[in-house]
Amino acid sequence: MSVIQLAVDGIVYGSIIVLGAVGLSLVYSIGDFPNFAHGDLMVAGAYGGLVANLGLTQIGLQPTSVFSPELLVTIVAGLAIGIVVAVATHYLVFKPLDSGPIALLITSFGVALIYRSLIWMGFGSSARSYNFPRSGPIGSIRDATGLAVTNRMLVIVLATAVVVTTLHFVLQYSMLGKKMRAAADNGDLARISGIRPRETVLTMWVGGGALAAMGGVFLGLHTLIRPLMGFDILLLIFAAVILGGIGSIYGAMLGGFAIGLAHEMTPVIPGVGSEYGAAVAFVIMIIILLVRPGGILGEETT
């Protein structure tokens, strides 16, 4: 396969990682703990989308392409589930805990197991897929460039671009976005300035849950929907967040694409096969942790 084709695949996979990483980074910086349940939160979103998708099929709506209102319904249903699950977990588990980052970290792993087991119980362990026709590579793109790009890949990258751009404007120019950045930068000073943690923390879970769910739906769209896929992608998302610098939303975006590219382009390294895609990403992550824990876009830690 050509290097450019690998890079294209990397951008697609990177888009999914970006969606997970931005949410995880939000929670890491404002909630102040690494949420090990974030991967399984994505899966919850993916299954939320699946329920809606199957429901549509049941009432006889048969999408002819992935570019369809059915996809929108699938995504929105996934988002709704992601948000509900994230916010409910906050109120039921994390908020009453009222403890330090390490206790939250360990608890979040318990939460991950709960999500995973409930999904597994509800949907079984076998892989599922969304009911959209699988089409081959888009002919015109293949003729022009020789690259295999499917409709699904196009949807994932375009939708991620829209989300990331919207997020940029919200964060940069809205007062809520500024408050979120302030709380992520310095939580104490944000409170001293009069920002209510309730508002930022709730926004963080809504935003984090929605982005995670979207990433989960796209992960399911890109490959298959499996109850255990959350953990596989979790460490890649951590790698992206750490590469970009914890708390830096833009860092998470950059880190997501970088890790996606590293994951898919591993075969370019002589003697290393695609089976080591994840390993290469983890090596990058560990190196960053050791030499520049603030991330490539983050501040030097003091």
Partner: peptide
């Protein structure tokens, strides 16, 4: 109706959350 695998995960997960709390 449940298989052992997820039930085990659920119990362990709930246990972690409850102990920490």
């Amino acid at each position: 109706a449940l298989s052992t695998g997820p039930l085990r995960l659920l119990i362990v997960g709930v246990l972690i959350v409850l102990i920490m709390r």
